[in-house]
């Protein structure tokens, strides 16, 4: 029986400039595990978008990456304001990000669509005023 590997990260909500650190670390870890470049890219993109979302919208949160034999699972958990309309948020180009965020090259409304595009499974549970939990899987 193979043991499941778990990487846990605290995503800092105050520091927009350090956003991406968890994703970069995950990419490094997955490389060391010898996973294919394609899988690593898909996990990295999905994770980065999720990380940025948590920084922009939720004041940070927790990220967990589980590596099992068949897939990599990314769990993003935040205590932010929640997503009002998930269907709308999943549409390319829809964004509630501020002008400041846009001036940094984000807020194009591509985050959640990219996360769906690059993963094989994605589930969003969100409650207004409570937070959002996103589970994504990329098959190995």
């Amino acid at each position: 029986m193979s043991e499941e590997l778990v990487f846990r990260f605290k995503v800092d909500g105050d520091d927009f400039t350090s956003a991406g650190q968890a994703s970069v670390q995950v990419k490094k870890n997955l490389r060391q595990l010898g996973l294919s470049a394609e899988v690593i890219k898909r996990v990295s993109v999905a994770m980065y978008e999720g990380e940025i979302n948590m920084v922009i919208h939720a004041g940070g949160g927790d990220a967990e990456v589980r590596v099992s034999e068949d897939y990599i699972e990314i769990v993003l958990d935040d205590k932010g304001p929640g997503i009002k309309n998930i269907d709308l948020a999943m549409q390319e180009g829809y964004s509630t990000a501020s002008d400041t965020i846009r001036s940094l090259g984000f807020g194009a409304g591509m985050g959640l669509p990219n996360m769906r595009k690059y993963t094989d499974y994605m589930d969003i549970q969100s409650e207004i005023g409570v937070g959002t939990k996103i589970v994504m899987r990329v098959n190995c």
Partner: peptide, 21 residues
């Protein structure tokens, strides 16, 4: 747009941009 680039730039590409943060 960083999300756009994330999804579309390929490994080993040269990425031309005006963003510098």
């Amino acid at each position: 747009l960083l999300s756009w680039v994330m999804g579309r730039a390929e490994a080993d590409n040269a990425w031309i941009t005006i963003m510098s943060n």
